[in-house]
Simulated assay, not measured.
Amino acid sequence: MGAIARPRRRVLAALLFAAGAPVPAFPAATGTEAYTVYAAGDIARCKHPDPRWSGAAATAALVEPLLRADPRSAVLSLGDHTYPVGAASEFEKCYAPTWGRFRDRTWPTPGNHEYATPGAKPYFAYFGERAGRAGRSYYSLRLGSWHVISLDSNLKGAAHAAQIAWLRTELAKDPAPCTLAFWHHPLYSSGGHPPPGRMRDAYRVLHAAGAELVLSGHDHDYERFARQDADGRIDPERGVRQFVVGTGGAYATPFIFFQPNSEAREANLDGVLELRLLADAYEWRFLPAHPGRVPAGSTPDRGRQACS
C-alpha cells in the first residue's frame, strides 16, 4: 500500500457474489499433475494488539489445515507481508505467529512495505533462498506442470530492465503448457491506487509468451479481471487473467477507481485465492476467512479456464 488515504470502512461489492448454494470443495485431484496454491498479500498488521486475533491469524487458520491435508500444495504470498515497514521485529512478532507457521511452504514476492526498510533486508533474511538467489529478488519454479514466476514490482531503471531480460530468457527456456506470474503492484485495479502502468512491460512479455495468470496484491481487496493484454484490450483466446488478492488480513479498503474488464470485486472479506493448477487448465475459488460473513444465499467467486 502507498500513501493514499482511504476511509477504513468495509465495502461489499455485489459483483463477487451470485445467488446459489455454498461453494463446494473442488473434486479430488486426478492424475499426477494437479497442484494447489493459496495466494494472498497484504497480511500482518503489527498495530493489532495481539497477532493471535488479527486478520492475518484468521487467514492463516484457513490455510494451514488445507496445506496439512495436501502435500501437493503451496502458498504464494503477494507482498506487504508486514506493516508498517517490514522490520525484522515485525516478521518476528506479527508474521511468524500467523503465516510464518507455513513459511517452508511459502513462495514470496516483496511489496513496497518491505522496502520501507532499506533493501528489504528483513524480508530477504526471513525467507532466505525462497525469496531469490544470486542476489536477485525474482525467481521461477515448477509447481506440478506449471511454470510459476515471482517478479519484483519495486525495481526501477537498470535493475528492472535486467529483470525483464531475465523473464524473456526464462520463458523461452521453459515453455511450459501453463504459466503463472506473481508480483505485488497490479497493472489493473479498481482499488484506491490509480493504475500506475507499473509492470506493463512484464505483462506484455507474458502475454506474448501465452501465459495464463498474473496475481498481485497492494490494494486490500479481491478483484478478478477478464483475459486481456497489457493495454487493457480483451483477448478471450490468449489474454492474461489478473487477480488482485490483497485480502491476507491487514485491513480492508474500498474500491474507488473502477476499471474496465473487472469481472468480480469484493472489499469486505479477508481471505485467500485457491487455485487448482491442472495439466491444461486452472480452477479458482475465493475462500473467505470468516464464511459466516458471506451474505446468505450467496456464493464467493469461482471458475475454471483452459490454458492458452
Rank of each mutant, 00 (worst) to 15 (best):
D152S: 09
A120Y: 02
R304D: 06
G2W: 01
L67Q: 06
T169H: 08
I43E: 00
T30I: 09
L167N: 02
W107G: 02
E274C: 11
P260K: 12
D201I: 11
G297A: 06
R227A: 07
A279V: 03
K93C: 11
D174Y: 14
I4Y: 14
Y38W: 01
E274D: 12
V85F: 10
T32L: 10
A226F: 02
G297C: 09
P291Q: 13
P236Q: 01
M1Q: 09
R130P: 04
H185S: 04
A74P: 05
M1E: 10
R276E: 13
S137R: 09
A296W: 06
F26Q: 07
T98Q: 00
V244F: 05
E237T: 15
R133W: 03
Y38D: 00
P300A: 05
N268A: 15
P291E: 06
G232T: 12
V294C: 07
G197H: 08
D80E: 08
A267V: 04
S150M: 12
P7T: 14
A74G: 10
F286K: 07
P22C: 09
A279G: 10
A58F: 06
M199L: 14
A158R: 14
R52S: 10
G111M: 00
Q305H: 15
E129C: 03
E274H: 10
L78V: 03
D280Y: 05
G246T: 02
R204S: 14
E212A: 12
A116R: 12
A120H: 02
V294P: 06
Y282H: 07
R101E: 07
Q228E: 12
E283H: 09
N154H: 09
C178Q: 01
N154I: 08
P49M: 05
R101W: 04
G303L: 03
R200M: 08
R265K: 12
R72F: 13
R224S: 04
W99M: 05
A18Q: 15
R302F: 10
A61S: 12
A21W: 05
G157Y: 08
R10G: 14
D104I: 07
L62P: 07
R101H: 10
Q305R: 15
F286C: 06
Y38H: 01
P196S: 15
Q259W: 13
G135M: 00
L269M: 11
R6Y: 15
V11R: 13
H220R: 04
R105C: 08
R204F: 14
Q163M: 09
K121E: 02
L180K: 06
R101N: 07
A158V: 12
L15Y: 10
V11S: 09
S77M: 09
S189K: 02
S137G: 12
Q305T: 13
P65Y: 12
H147P: 03
T36S: 05
W284T: 06
P71C: 00
